[in-house]
Simulated scan of single mutants.
Amino acid sequence: MARKAPLFINGKFISAGPTAVHRVALELVKALAPLISDRELCLLVPPGLAQLAHGPGIQTHPVGGLKGNAWEQISLPWHARGGVLLNLCNRSPLVLRNGLTLLHDAQAFTAPRSYAFAGRLAGQWQARAAGRRQLGLLTVSDFAKSELVGLGLAPAERVHVIPNGADHVLRAPPQTELLARLGLAPRGYALALANLMPHKNIPLLIRAFARPALAGMTLVLVGGTGRAAFAAAGVTAGANVVFPGYVNDGEMRALQENALAVCTPSLTEGFGLPPVEGLMLGTPAVIAPCGALPEVCGPGALQADPHDPSAWEAALLRLRDESGLRARLARDGRAFVARFTWHAAGRRLLEVVDTVAPG
């Protein structure tokens, strides 16, 4: 059987920071490699990145003499001629036709206050170009698909859902030393990501933990946004809010496994990896009934009004005090999210590629 056209991947994400979007891209690349036998798989990267992100079956090729956005817009499409180019981090060459772009959400359109003006316009422009010119769009949930279709970026038959995996959290052994260092008791704290983007709605959690009934419980906010940044934004975190900063995978697993709950009060999410990761490890979620969160958390979550701190207080107190509730949510949630594996995501991605670009 003749080999199909090569599958190229936009490797610009390798030079970026450790965000969820970039984690998804790397995991998809690693999942694709062992599944492909009838076409070449090649990660195209800017100059100087040849030694990064290698894996079995992955060829990494530095191409072109440009860097940054100029590399993505000029060098990348030139070197991806004759194949199919996958763009896994929302952005892609404006002139591209022989490719697919993964839009993780529609937030450049639906949550404009979360993005700087120039970045928002660039995201909207690139999303429209991808939907109009390319072989199709990829996204991560039925909710995200409905938004992309509703915005007119592409018709429903050209938007393909590839749910994220979450089983990467099972790889790194838990490093529980962090809990002792932070003075955290198992089930004595709730976990969330530290973020000041308005749609993430984290100040709501801080207000909930200022309520007297939660004075004995800790809120752990992980990530690069610290207490001072929240204070500068007018959000004062109490003494029961802890900011450990960035943590490695083993430390994050320890925090997720031992938390009372993973909290996600977002006003919109295209997927929502943190609560699904927690459920994969047997920790229930408390979520806002918004975006894709109910879709991806299923029976493993309590839902709380994203505008009412008392609703989050009540949900966390139920998890702490109501006999059997946490165990039931953990059991049902873990069974529900078992479908979210990177192997399944890779297989689905390859099915889409073979459908839209079979030759």
Results as ranks from 00 to 15, higher is better:
Leu273Gln: 04
Ala172Trp: 11
Leu214Val: 06
Leu88Lys: 10
Ile74Ala: 12
Lys12Gly: 11
Ser92Ile: 09
Ile58Asp: 01
Arg171Gly: 08
Ala237Asp: 02
Phe13Cys: 12
Thr341Asn: 02
Gly346Arg: 03
Leu329Ser: 00
Leu350Arg: 05
Ala31Lys: 01
Leu35Ala: 06
Pro163Ala: 07
Asn240Ile: 01
Ala118Lys: 15
Ala208Lys: 08
Cys42Pro: 06
Arg3Phe: 14
Arg128Gly: 10
Pro93Tyr: 06
Phe8Trp: 07
Ala122Ser: 12
Leu44Phe: 05
Gly188Glu: 03
Ala70Asp: 14
Pro47Gly: 09
Gly17Arg: 14
Arg328Pro: 07
Gly83Cys: 05
Ser323Val: 12
Glu147Leu: 09
Val84Lys: 13
Val45Ala: 05
Gly188Asp: 06
Val84Gly: 10
Ala327Phe: 07
Pro358Lys: 02
Leu329Val: 05
Ile9Thr: 00
Asn195Ser: 15
His104Glu: 09
Val242Gly: 08
Pro62Met: 10
Gly298Thr: 00
Leu102Met: 14
Ile202Ala: 06
Met280Cys: 14
Arg348Val: 00
Leu153Ile: 04
Leu260Cys: 04
Lys4Pro: 05
Ser310Phe: 06
Leu121Val: 10
Asn258Met: 03
Leu138Ala: 03
Phe271Asn: 01
Thr236Leu: 14
Pro299Cys: 04
Ala2Gln: 15
Pro306Tyr: 02
Gly48His: 11
Thr139Glu: 05
Cys89Thr: 15
Leu66Glu: 13
Leu49Pro: 07
Ala335Cys: 11
His22Lys: 12
Ile58Met: 12
Leu196Gly: 02
Lys30Gly: 06
Arg97Glu: 13
Thr176Tyr: 15
Val63Trp: 13
Val241Trp: 07
Leu148Ser: 04
Ala292Glu: 04
Leu316Thr: 03
Glu40Trp: 07
Leu316Ile: 06
Leu316Ser: 00
Leu85Arg: 06
Pro265Arg: 02
Gly223Asp: 05
Gly123Glu: 01
Met1Thr: 15
Ala129Ile: 12
Thr139Cys: 10
Gly300Cys: 09
Ala285Leu: 03
Glu27Pro: 01
